[in-house]
Design a protein around this nucleic acid. Structure first.
Length: 107
DNA sequence: CAGTTGACGGCCC
DNA sequence: GGGGCCGCCAACT
């Protein structure tokens, strides 16, 4: 509770809360992490991805639902594969945010 | 310590 | 409708 978590861990915590079968955009994660302007920071944090096993960075897409090409954990094709494994349909390398877009619980 | 970069977002032309 | 530029914050060198 000391909020000693750094900005990165904070972002990881949000991504980790993304339910299976849904996706969240960088701005979405950034907003839940604390600030929407962290969109770039989110990208940086996910790139660090210290725990790809607990941090489904592949569930994080751009606001357009497109997967990032700079993906380094296997390639875009791999991310799409993982998304479909979650029941998310990927079209043209993009997902239907209006259908799979993660609804913020905004507790 | 300061400068540059970066898995983005939003607005302008 | 598509493409390009600027702006935001934090981390990295």
């Amino acid at each position: 509770m000391s909020e000693s978590k750094g900005t990165f861990e904070r972002i990881y915590d949000v991504v980790r809360q993304i339910p299976r079968g849904q996706v969240a955009s960088y701005g979405q994660v950034a907003a839940l992490a604390g600030n929407k302007r962290w969109a770039r920071v989110v990208g940086y944090a996910l790139h660090a991805n210290p725990d790809p096993d607990g941090i489904p960075c592949y569930r994080v897409v751009t606001k357009e639902g497109g997967v990032s090409k700079a993906f380094a954990f296997g390639g875009e094709n791999e991310q799409i594969r993982l998304l479909e494994a979650d029941g998310i349909k990927v079209v043209d390398g993009k997902v239907d945010m209006k259908k799979y877009g993660w609804e913020i619980p905004e507790l």
